[in-house]
């Protein structure tokens, strides 16, 4: 049973924000409004990060996804013609429904199995919050420690550089 406390109420609100925002993105026929719904959804995700005792990730979620990527998306929307009244409709309803149901089923399986266990035994401690939550300082130490994540840290930098170069090449293609 789910206990009714501040945490579960907060989770419920955030889940509604996340899923409702997601629905808004999919169902809206106006691309810009869709982008705004996306921000609502991402904001809900940030809240869930907080509930999972990962405030750093929550702040990153807001800073990067809402503050930067969402803005980039609105720019991309502006680059699209007739963004406010899309005429085309998706016609293959049946195929769409089948794919959606299958996807939903697999995702459900993926989330429920680890909790309930394959053989029916349930791991009760899943909902218990972790005792030792890593601080940002520990994260910083781990990022540059030779035995931990220094290589991924540098590779991330390389990846970002590659992403930027790629983006510039693609965006400026028409001018050369």
């Amino acid at each position: 049973m789910i206990e009714i406390n501040a945490q579960s109420i907060a989770f419920a609100i955030l889940a509604v924000l996340t899923l409702g925002g997601g629905l808004g993105v999919v169902l809206n026929r106006n691309l810009f409004r869709g982008a705004i719904w996306l921000m609502v959804s991402l904001f809900g995700v940030a809240g869930i990060f907080v509930l999972l005792s990962a405030p750093f990730l929550a702040a990153v979620q807001v800073l990067v996804y809402i503050g930067a990527i969402a803005i980039l998306i609105t720019f991309a929307v502006m680059l699209t013609r007739s963004m406010t009244n899309l005429g085309e409709r998706f016609v293959r309803r049946t195929a769409g429904i089948v794919v959606a149901v299958l996807l939903f089923f697999f995702i459900l399986l993926g989330t429920i199995l680890p909790v309930w266990g394959v053989d029916g035994t349930r791991y009760d401690d899943v909902s218990a919050p972790a005792e030792n939550v890593a601080t940002t300082r520990e994260l910083g130490v781990a990022l540059v420690d030779g035995n931990q994540f220094v290589l991924p840290f540098e590779v991330a930098s390389l990846l970002l550089t590659a992403a930027m170069i790629g983006a510039i090449v693609i965006a400026r293609e028409d001018e050369e």
């Binding site: 921000m39 702040a59 990153v60 807001v62 800073l63 809402i66 503050g67 930067a68 969402a70 803005i71």
Partner: peptide, 9 residues
């Protein structure tokens, strides 16, 4: 920084 970036939006 994160909250202030909402102002842009």
């Amino acid at each position: 920084v994160a909250v202030a970036s909402l102002g842009t939006l």
